[in-house]
């Protein structure tokens, strides 16, 4: 609806890309996108950087209004691979300073309205998967484990056991 932030984001994008290209020398000037775990997006990062607002908006309507949960852009899934762990070893909320989304959004001065309602951290079971994946390192088994978890999220079978959801 508000096109201005998108416009700003688009203006900021070439800058971001340039930053990525010349990574290393200008680190301090440009946002440093936190590394993700799991299998990379086949569409490539540039595609997702550019299109994630539209993809998320499109898929949110599919899920909420039509009940279609087999969508490609699901915040819940994003948060698994893109979780950022803070200095206290707890996940940083994606929209909070240092969180995955905030890194670029703060740079481009685009506010995020997702996490006023959506949980900005993975839930308990997701946290365990992430922890395990980190311990296992970048192996095919890790990728499979994460893929399995993402699929479980999508199918709605990955419910956090009741008591730990509050932790």
């Amino acid at each position: 609806m508000i096109r201005l932030p998108h416009l700003l984001a688009l203006i900021a994008l070439p800058v971001l890309l340039a930053a990525a290209a010349s990574a290393g020398q200008d680190r301090a000037l440009w946002p440093e996108v936190p590394k993700a775990i799991g299998t990379p997006h086949p569409e490539g990062n540039e595609y997702w950087r550019r299109h994630h607002p539209d993809l998320l908006r499109h898929d949110r309507d599919l899920t909420l209004r039509m009940g279609d949960r087999t969508v490609r852009a699901s915040l819940r899934q994003c948060l698994v691979c893109h979780a950022v762990t803070g200095p206290d070893a707890r996940p940083v909320a994606a929209g909070d300073p240092g969180g995955f989304c905030a890194v670029c959004h703060e740079y481009a001065a685009v506010s995020i309205d997702c996490f006023t309602c959506h949980k900005a951290t993975p839930d308990a079971r997701g946290l365990r998967v992430i922890e395990k994946a980190r311990a296992m390192g970048n192996t095919p088994e890790t990728a499979t484990m994460i893929a399995d978890y993402l699929e479980a999220l999508q199918k709605g079978t990955a419910f956090a056991p009741q008591p730990e959801a509050t932790e």
Binding site: G38, T39, P42, E43, Y47, A147
Partner: peptide, 14 residues
């Protein structure tokens, strides 16, 4: 049953 990852074929930006 769908495979969330690896993702479906890359969707061109167009």
């Amino acid at each position: 049953m769908k495979q969330p990852t690896p993702r479906p074929d890359a969707v061109p930006p167009s």
